[in-house]
């Protein structure tokens, strides 16, 4: 089972200062959230010149989105933090090449997703090409012994590749074609993995002994 993150939970609605455009002074104006948060041109320009305060403002705005993307797929806080560090170090080197023809958050999200999938590839156990084989190692659908079931736990019971497909498709808006490219597989592979993963999740939910999901039962302290 993947390690449960020990960082502070952010289940509540994002505080007001997390929403909006990242401004040059590190403050934010109303806008989006997570990777959808727009980046103002002054901060972008300062970052292109290597201003660490601008990078810090970008980090403050997008680090959590990067971290959660990686964490949901990798399941390990330390690995997710490594991904955030790698992504931001790479960002500092490559932001000069960001042309601005796509939203900044989307560009960063792609870097984070690629870094996370690269990390998955390092683990040969996750390199299963056959969707059936991917799920074969899992046991029968059964509720946990302590009957404590939450969304995080259920997601982490899936193989890492399945988690990646679910998170990227269902939460980050990747298409099956993009997932196929990302994994070097066919679209039908991505569709099959997604279908099986969702089936697996919903089967667990339908177990009578499972507690309702949606909010973690155990506080993430």
């Amino acid at each position: 089972m993947a390690e449960r993150p020990t960082g502070p939970p952010c289940d509540e609605p994002a505080p007001a200062d997390v929403l909006g455009t990242v401004m040059a002074d590190g403050m934010r104006q109303a806008g989006g959230q997570g990777f959808g948060l727009p980046l103002d041109s002054i901060t972008l320009e300062r970052a292109r010149r290597g201003d660490m305060r601008a990078f810090e403002a970008i980090y403050a705005a997008y680090a959590k989105a990067c971290y959660n993307l990686a964490l949901r797929i990798l399941g390990e806080p330390a690995a997710a933090e490594d991904i955030v560090q790698d992504v931001f170090l790479k960002l500092m080197d490559t932001i000069g090449g960001f042309r601005g023809d796509a939203p900044f958050g989307a560009w960063l999200k792609r870097m984070a997703a690629n870094a996370t999938i690269d990390r998955l590839r390092l683990d040969r156990r996750q390199g299963v090409d056959d969707p059936e084989a991917l799920f074969a190692t899992l046991g029968a659908v059964d509720p946990p012994a302590d009957a404590v079931v939450d969304a995080w736990t259920l997601l982490q019971r899936l193989p890492a590749r399945a988690r990646a497909v679910i998170v990227l498709h269902q939460m980050e808006g990747y298409t099956h074609r993009e997932l196929a490219e990302l994994f070097g597989q066919t679209e039908s592979y991505s569709k099959s993995v997604l279908s099986r993963a969702l089936q697996r999740l919903h089967a667990t939910l339908e177990e009578p002994s499972s507690t309702p999901v949606g909010a973690p039962v155990i506080g993430h302290v």
Partner: peptide
């Protein structure tokens, strides 16, 4: 490409909508 879209609609699975968010160290 996905980078042009930001799916703020709730995920298809209600389970995923309930996923907690964690803050890094």
């Amino acid at each position: 490409m996905s980078e042009y879209r930001f799916p703020f609609d709730p995920p298809a699975s209600p389970l995923l909508a309930g996923l907690p968010e964690f803050a890094p160290d």
